[in-house]
Write a protein that binds this DNA or RNA. Structure first.
Lengths: 246, 246
DNA sequence: TCCCGCGATATGTCAGACAATTAAAAATTG
DNA sequence: CAATTTTTAATTGTCTGACATATCGCGGGA
């Protein structure tokens, strides 16, 4: 760990980077306790508030956790897939909103990614995966389900589909992409007819997976992508028609 | 923006979340100046160092930038794809290293994602995309290229391939996945024969894209995936043979 | 007109202090 | 001696006040 600081940049930035490097390189392994704030301050020759700012930067990335009290301190966090996923989702959400990514682009990316999971899912899906898919499909048929709940179940269905590929890295990417898209998806109004259509396609996907039939799965996914795009373009049409309604 | 704080959690955490929500919701638009630290301190009824810790948390996520001097302060950042990508890459790198994701899983995810880009890339690739691909392919044939440089060029080739899909969201995901894998890929030793093999497959991909031939592109990608996996399994074999060598 | 300096404002950093929390050591009790 | 309670020490969380530093805008002088 480097302890010499450069005056051109903020100290807290450099200290955070130094510690981050130590973590990434494995120099500070998971669950290792970092030196106390006072000791870090002495080692880097800065004040404790400055060290604290550096630690907060790391905490914001879930790289460390802190505990108070004797034998407390900052500890290297094992970055779980769940945490990383939450992080990815907020970043993706911001990207979509700040850069005005339109529905088509986001949906296209999402379905492209999802399609990438199908070959693996078709061969690896277990009975428990199929059961999750069936459960969500059943939920989507519930009477009186709100649009938001339907959308949430749709997301859950697709996440189960991705999980069936049995690759955590893939699941991580997908979950982030799907979650970030949820605000956009929530703008869709799901009529009874469109729900039936979507459920039919979901059912086709489920059947294809049960039969390990990649070709059928691909077809269903393509159809679902087309249909979702069509629903999405309705949003735009509606908005263009009433631009002042906000 | 909420200003009431709960005593159970750290103030800096809550203040950061409050500001983050304001940004995500669009309440604080891009390039908007946040209140000064002193004003935030007064508004949340905390001290300035506490506010600063909160701001550093946001800075760690590239959500804000700060400027010193009169008319300085913290400004909402437009989260660029490049920044988000760097962020994604470090997160992904940490995930891979901390959770001991093996080469096969990471490579499988990467090629699955990449394969997802092919249909789009085949129809949308422009001459400039093809030129980038050709340039990298030429670089890979350079005499005396180190393994690391070859690997870097390989990464650049694949990123160009993904960019050809013309979907920034997809490019973002892929670039993160590929970059995170680079440390793993760097462990491969590229013999003259394996380089020739890889370049042949790259060439096949390029040709397929030029001809808008999706089927050929898929075949080349599959072959490349298989070959990379084979190279990867050599690493493991070598490591298993000499476990003490480190 | 152009340049220089000055003040105002804001962030960056420091020093020292106290509060809150927690684990371990020490003292007390049965 | 064992179990329980109290004390103590270590560490993070927060506050106060101050100074250093960077930058913009204004006004005066060459």
């Amino acid at each position: 760990m480097k302890t010499e600081l450069n005056k051109t940049t903020e100290y807290s930035q450099q200290i955070a980077q130094s510690l981050r490097d130590a973590i990434i390189s494995g120099d500070l392994p998971v669950d290792e306790r970092l030196p106390s704030e006072a000791e870090l301050a002495a080692r880097f020759n800065v004040s404790r508030p400055t060290v604290r700012e550096a630690l907060k930067r790391l905490a914001a990335q879930n790289l460390i956790r802190t505990q108070r009290g004797a034998s407390g301190g900052a500890f290297v966090n094992r970055l779980s897939f769940a945490q990383a996923q939450a992080h990815l989702a907020t970043t993706a959400t911001l990207l979509l909103s700040m850069n005005a990514v339109d529905f088509e682009t986001a949906a296209e990316a999402r379905f492209a990614l999802e399609r990438a999971c199908l070959p693996l899912a078709c061969t690896r899906r277990t009975p428990s995966h199929l059961a999750s898919l069936r459960a969500e499909l059943a939920r989507q048929g519930t009477q009186g389900l709100s649009d938001e709940d339907f959308c949430a179940s749709d997301v859950a269905f697709h996440r189960a589909l991705v999980d069936a590929a049995g690759n955590p890295v893939l699941s991580w990417h997908m979950a982030g992409a799907v979650e970030a898209m949820q605000p956009l998806m929530n703008m869709i109004t799901y009529t009874a007819r469109s729900r039936a259509q979507i459920m039919a396609l979901h059912h086709a996907l489920l059947t294809a997976l049960e039969a390990n039939d990649l070709q059928a799965a691909n077809q269903a996914m393509d159809a679902l992508a087309d249909y979702t795009m069509a629903l999405g373009s309705e949003i735009r049409a509606r908005r263009a028609a009433r631009p002042a309604a906000r």
